[in-house]
Design a protein around this nucleic acid. Structure first.
Lengths: 338, 338
DNA sequence: CTGAAAGCGCTTACAG
DNA sequence: CTGAAAGCGCTTACAG
């Protein structure tokens, strides 16, 4: 930058003004500086800019598993939205493990990141709370924190689960199981919400929820879905429908049912949750809940960047935490249609 | 750091020595500094460190699509390996679009990244070459650059395609089609390599490759796989086997075949490439080539970090480009087994 | 509209 | 083993 200034015969202040597109530079000066810039093939040193300005234009996205299709899709959309706002994205993976969720939080201040989009699975509210006192802007995806603690983006899991269960009832099923109820190994709050919605729908329809028909899992994976369905199929009463708390679980369930020589949906109807692309091509295609992932990603990124910019402009004032609830819809496919 | 130094009664040099774990600090001094560090809850300012040292400990991974299962799996593994070496990963997505692949390359110098793992799809060799003159360490995944241009990680696509095609021949198939041959819309070099291997295997077995049996695609997606299979099924001769250049294409092909009321593998055997987890649960499960993804990710990250450290230690010498070829294996599943 | 100068928080030869 | 000091490359009040 000093070289550019010398060549253009101005101070570095003016070069900086031109580079950053400030308006009050005389056209002739701007011209001269522009030329020097291109002649010297000037590239801004971002670490110097970051040091001085306090902003890296990098945000960090913390996800439990990037190779889970749902999170891969969300991550893609987050990156797309961040890119349009000129931010880069560092991705961190925790495997949903409490220790690693904690580690990521603890070593964040002073890192090269302006803020955090965080999808906790295992970490307790209190720990998240204390991490929030570092004055790094944070937006949380999901149900893991209570309302009012920080900005959060979360769909109405109870209502969505209720809808899909009602759909299973509406096609005449009576013995409706659920795979993916919460467990010690899976503290994910959304599992509990989805169980709530499922129980509500059954109760409203006069069907009594039975613990025998609810199988918990360690993780939302195909393998766990298959194992859980196996368990249901050796049980006393065979279900005629299964609501899976995620599409990945449903994929495993489909495989188990097939292995047992049964047919979907004739013998057992199957529904999932997430609307991953895989479910639009599986055999049979999968009925599911489609959360508005574009809205989730966009509102997450925008809330975060809002807060980053607000924090730097008005350090003294504070904005109350916001909660954004993207919409969702039931998508009916072959797995619940004759 | 100044505050810490004051509190411990030492210079910032000594604090820096302690923080960075340098050996030559007197135990008593170290002790005092450590205490001051914790009392003040000191966090290193990474942007200052980056500015001064020239290293951000961030690497950038450029992928065409993060929501493609293959790349999601690779990205996960890259991040895991980077984390063990204390590097963070910025992920950039290009959609396989030449303009965006170019953009990512052009705005890299001076960015907060120490190096690049790059998976080009569309960009011409010459353009990649010129970008390589920026002295940022780069490792390329895939076939897009000629040997010797830079470090690259690539499996033997020809041999792998040959193997899978030979397998289809070995189960008695005669009319073996291929989905995913290269096209203008899909300049991906690995598609060409896989076509080569397929043609070689047919020729060796005395079967003559026919252009009618090779359908190109715009992108390795489920939707394109379905479309391509539809095309094959309305053709003059119905294939009795299909080699798909990726598992995602195969997923689409399976759906098309099912829609046409045909059976896999009895009517048509199907094989893919990549071994994404989806193919271990699909109906039927999918025969495929399993590239050693752990090896790909690990050798990519290690080569890059090697080069980053080498570059800073011995600016004057140069290391010749390396080419690493991770192994692969054929995995036979239901889609090619009666 | 433009310049001179301080300073962001580190690292690192150079002395001692 | 430790300190004083320069400097990485920017940004930004403050003058003029």
């Amino acid at each position: 930058m000093k070289d550019v200034a010398a060549r253009a015969g101005v101070s570095t202040k003016t070069v900086s003004n031109v580079v950053r597109g400030w308006p009050n530079v005389a056209p002739a000066t701007r011209e001269r500086v522009q030329q020097a810039l291109t002649e010297l093939d000037y590239r801004m040193n971002r670490s110097a800019q970051t040091l001085k300005s306090g902003h890296s234009h990098i945000i960090t996205l913390v996800v439990p598993w990037l190779d889970s299709p749902y999170f891969a899709e969300i991550t893609t959309l987050v990156m797309r939205e961040a890119a349009t706002l000129a931010y880069s994205v560092i991705v961190e993976q925790t495997d949903g493990d409490a220790a690693r969720e904690r580690a990521v939080l603890s070593r964040l201040t002073g890192q090269l990141t302006d803020g955090l989009i965080y999808s906790p699975i295992s970490l307790e509210t209190s720990e998240i709370q204390s991490a929030l006192t570092q004055d790094l802007p944070v937006v949380v995806f999901g149900e893991r924190v209570p309302f009012g603690m920080c900005d959060q983006i979360v769909i109405d899991n109870v209502e969505a689960a209720r809808q899909v269960t009602k759909h299973l009832i509406s096609i005449g099923r009576k013995r409706i199981a659920m795979i993916g109820s919460p467990s010690a190994g899976l503290p994910e709050r959304s599992a509990a919400m989805r169980l709530d919605g499922y129980v509500q729908a059954l109760t409203e329809a006069g069907l009594s929820p039975s613990p025998d028909m609810q199988v918990d899992v360690q993780i939302f994976s195909r393998a766990e879905g298959e194992r859980a369905m196996d368990e249901l199929l050796v049980g006393a009463t065979r279900p005629d429908a299964v609501f899976c708390a995620s599409d990945l679980l449903a994929m495993g369930a489909l495989r188990s049912i097939r292995r047992h020589g049964l047919h979907v949906p004739d013998d057992i109807a199957v529904a999932g949750f997430d609307d991953i692309e895989e479910g639009r091509f599986s055999n049979p295609t999968l009925t599911t809940i489609r959360p508005n992932k574009v809205a989730i990603a966009q509102s997450g990124v925008r809330s975060l960047i809002d807060r980053i910019q607000w924090a730097s402009d008005y350090r003294h004032t504070s904005v109350p935490p916001r909660r954004i609830t993207p919409d969702h819809e039931l998508v009916v496919r072959e797995s619940t249609t004759r």
